[in-house]
């Protein structure tokens, strides 16, 4: 099912980590979208999640902690024939890179952002993340987290993001379908993927999630209804909804540049001297 998308044997992840399932779902989804590995760019920051690109045979831009989204936005603008995904962590995307995410919602580039949301900083060994629950105890937050968790799905709906979804690493098939849908969607897709971290998050485990997650029944939720989407986005606790929460077609960032109407930016020839002479003439 992976259609040319090959996964490495070696990874730096702990056995049992939710990242394995996410990687498998990504490969399945990309194969299902009939993409060739060299037409896909995986962009990431720093963290355990952000290592995913190294374990699959696509183009990779593994940049700085928190800064994957602006790089991905530009890559897509320069070559909109490529499929661009961001694989990022909750710290990477909602913490260090929070401002970029806000503005990416506004820009709406045609990219897919997969947040491996383990509600903890995995790579730096277990500090709280923006999505850690109130009271979550870590070595650093030894008296428990004193901040309320960020609700990324509600934030995305509030920001009118083009596609907002929640996935669960404990359901590879469902996740692969969700990622494929997000990749095919024209516009920015945010998929907040709940990912158990077996080493540092003993609270939000596979079992914890399995007791709570559900896909709303066919026909019971209309993702184009923003108010309904917001209500669903606020549903958290005993019941945690998965799947597409919100969806709206909006003008895509890249299609608003005159330079990109005839083809990709990377394929445009250099300007001729006549055009330059004309620009200079304006200064006389």
């Amino acid at each position: 099912m992976t259609k040319g998308f090959q996964l490495t044997e070696e990874t730096a992840w702990c056995p049992g980590c939710g990242n394995f399932a996410i990687r498998q779902a990504v490969a399945q989804a990309l194969g299902r979208c009939e993409l060739e590995p060299n037409r896909v760019v995986l962009v990431s920051g720093i963290g355990q999640a952000a290592k995913l690109p190294h374990y699959i045979n696509t183009n990779i831009f593994n940049g700085l902690h928190g800064r994957a989204v602006p790089a991905a936005t530009a890559i897509k603008a320069v070559n909109h024939d490529l499929t661009v995904l961001v694989t990022t962590g909750d710290g990477d995307c909602y913490g260090e890179g929070g401002n970029h995410l806000l503005h990416a919602f506004r820009r709406n580039p045609d990219i897919t952002i997969l947040v491996h949301d383990n509600q903890v900083y995995g790579l730096t060994k277990g500090q709280a993340s923006p999505t850690s629950e109130y009271g979550f105890v870590t070595k650093l937050q030894s008296h428990g987290v004193k901040n309320e968790p960020l609700n990324p799905v509600a934030l995305a709906v509030a920001m009118d993001a083009s596609l907002v979804a929640r996935g669960f690493a404990g359901d590879i098939q469902g996740l692969a379908a969700l990622i494929a849908l997000a990749v095919k969607h024209r516009g920015l897709s945010l998929v907040d993927i709940r990912q158990p971290c077996v080493s540092f998050n003993k609270l939000n485990t596979y079992a914890w999630y399995r007791e709570r997650v559900y896909y709303p029944e066919e026909g019971t939720h209309d993702p184009s209804d923003r108010v309904a989407a917001f209500r669903l986005a606020l549903t958290w606790g005993d019941r945690i909804p998965l799947g597409v929460i919100y969806r709206r077609e909006r003008p895509v960032f890249e299609e608003q540049f005159a330079a990109l109407t005839e083809g990709t930016l990377v394929s445009r020839p250099y300007p001729g001297t006549a055009l330059l002479e004309k620009a200079l003439a304006a200064f006389y």
Partner: peptide, 11 residues
């Protein structure tokens, strides 16, 4: 970071 993404992509 945008400029670097653009450079990576070829311009």
């Amino acid at each position: 970071n945008m400029a670097l993404g653009a450079s990576y992509a070829g311009v």
